[in-house]
Design a protein around this nucleic acid. Sequence first.
DNA 1: ATATTATGGAGTCACAAAGTCCACAATATA
DNA 2: TATATTGTGGACTTTGTGACTCCATAATAT
Lengths: 142, 142
Amino acid sequence: MQVTKTLDYAVRSLTYMGHQPIGKHSMKEISQEQHIPLSYLAKIMRRLVKKGLVRSSLGPDGGYTLRKSPNEINLRDIYEAIEGEIRMVECMDKDSICVLYDTCPQLPVWDKIQLSMVKILEDTTLADMLKERKNITMNQVN
Amino acid sequence: MQVTKTLDYAVRSLTYMGHQPIGKHSMKEISQEQHIPLSYLAKIMRRLVKKGLVRSSLGPDGGYTLRKSPNEINLRDIYEAIEGEIRMVECMDKDSICVLYDTCPQLPVWDKIQLSMVKILEDTTLADMLKERKNITMNQVN
DNA sequence: ATATTATGGAGTCACAAAGTCCACAATATA
DNA sequence: TATATTGTGGACTTTGTGACTCCATAATAT
């Protein structure tokens, strides 16, 4: 029931890129700025490319660019790109079989929690998170 | 971000006991009825005893009894007895240190999700879950 | 006295998260 | 066109922990 480091890395990378949504950002740059192991970051970025969240280009001056603007990328997209489909319990999987499924008293609870979680993730965009950061910075200044 | 089998076992055991809240239930009985490995259940019950959710008695005709009535035991109690304090991300731990903490843009999101999760867990009691089951059973009868 | 129950702790196993490494492909530019 | 720079793809290692077992011990009902 915890956010994995991998997801954290992905969110941090994308948030970082969100500061210059048009610009291109190399793995090296992201790795250094966000303190993420380069070779591990490589793996994560591949998923983000494959899922269509970022575009990549090779060669010198290559790197990554956001495919959509920060207010069009929500946390659910990122979550699912990294972790796959969201589900609180195994038995919510389509392929799973549980004899107790039909009368399971806990299922409604986990389902409720999952729904509220998905909603919050969906309602939160990269832009929101960038705003969040600015607010805090402003508070510090004042 | 998933419910562990251990937590599932704990909830199932307690729900089972909730059917006869006054009665005594041996590990063997619970294990057989709920299809939980006996030796593993032993470990789980120890935590529930230690955290004060159930009372245990030794010897023949020994077993476990709920310490409170089903409507006084909520899922948060059970969750925390098994998994410890609820926290979505490592850095929410008191002892953790993260340089980014003060300006971290994702923290508010995870915090929000965690709060809504805790609320739902707190609002859901064993009694609620027992009711849930009855409803479904009634639906099946009709 | 004996059988039955829970307790406490040590130990095993499997799997997945986290991270590394390397050979390869694309491409800008000198 | 040679070279340096960048991402790609896959294999591999490490580490931690969830899930589970086993056993010796303590309490207690009959």
